[in-house]
Amino acid sequence: MQLFYCNYGDLPYLLFIKVDKHLFRAFVQFWNFAYSCFTFGRVDLVPTVEEYTVLLRCPRIQADKVYSRAVNVPTFIKKLMNITGMSEQWVTARIKQKGESKYIPWKNLRDLILAYPDTKKKVDVFALSIYGLVFFPRALGHIDEVVSDLFDRLDRRVTSVPTILAETFRSLDACQRTGEGRFIGCAQLLLAWFHSHFWKVDKVFYRVFSESYSPLKELTATPRRDDITEERWITILQNL
């Protein structure tokens, strides 16, 4: 796993963060889409690029190199061949299409991770899966072409954080405007950011300045109640 953390940071901890649906539904109600921030009474909070970067702790990220979609990009097949190391025939046989969108099922990538002998490729495919299933869960159980483009360009040490934030804001706007709908941003990272504003780490705050300190690891190890109703959370958030 050390190879994974060196290349992609603390992404795996997101898999262990349970999304409290009651908290999340209450939380979204405080999103102010007019100003793109959360408003709790007279207090405004909004996740920033710097905060998300610290949470993810990815050593390959260069904050001054932001991902943007290139004009001429390889095809979905070529990108998947590059990431997985598999043949064109293998990739083509597993791509699905719905409308104009193309996807590859997670179960195919999972089987590849379990069987592939190349450790680095295992790590790359696992990281791609996290991007497609956790950061940008557009199609449940599938990784889509847009995600593969972003992931394919991480080798150039670009940061995907602004893109993650943009998708989060867009999803929050959509949920707030309609009053319902599926949130397709990274709910785990958003809740980790929210909890990070209220942490006390053994009452010794200077630990957070240690290079070895992992906010996401700390969060996964912190017990949290899951029996608080949505109405109770709304009351708590109103009185922050």
Rank of each mutant, 00 (worst) to 15 (best):
M1H: 10
Q2V: 08
F4S: 00
C6G: 03
D10L: 00
Y13M: 01
Y13N: 04
I17Q: 06
H22A: 14
F24V: 05
A26N: 04
V28A: 07
V28R: 05
N32P: 02
A34I: 02
A34S: 10
F38Y: 07
G41S: 06
P47I: 03
T48D: 06
V49K: 12
Y52Q: 02
Y52F: 15
L56S: 01
C58M: 03
P59Q: 04
A63T: 08
Y67S: 02
S68W: 14
A70I: 05
N72A: 14
P74E: 11
P74D: 10
I77A: 14
I77P: 02
K79A: 07
K79N: 14
T84P: 14
S87Q: 14
E88G: 15
E88M: 14
V91G: 13
I95H: 11
E100P: 00
I104S: 06
W106V: 12
Y116W: 13
P117C: 06
V123F: 00
D124C: 00
A127G: 00
I130M: 00
R138S: 09
H142L: 10
I143P: 05
E145W: 05
E145R: 11
V146W: 12
S148M: 08
D149A: 13
F151V: 01
V158R: 04
T159L: 02
T159V: 03
S160D: 12
V161D: 06
T163N: 08
T163F: 09
T163G: 02
L165N: 08
S171I: 07
L172C: 06
L172S: 04
D173Y: 02
A174S: 11
C175H: 01
Q176Y: 06
Q176V: 06
R177L: 13
T178A: 12
E180Y: 09
G181R: 09
I184K: 14
C186A: 05
C186E: 07
A187L: 03
A187P: 15
Q188K: 13
L191D: 04
S196I: 03
V201C: 06
K203W: 05
F205W: 07
Y206Q: 03
S212T: 14
L216W: 10
K217L: 09
E218C: 03
A221S: 12
P223F: 11
R225D: 13
D226Q: 11
D227A: 08
I228F: 11
E231L: 13
E231P: 03
T235P: 02
T235M: 13
I236H: 14
I236C: 13
N239G: 01
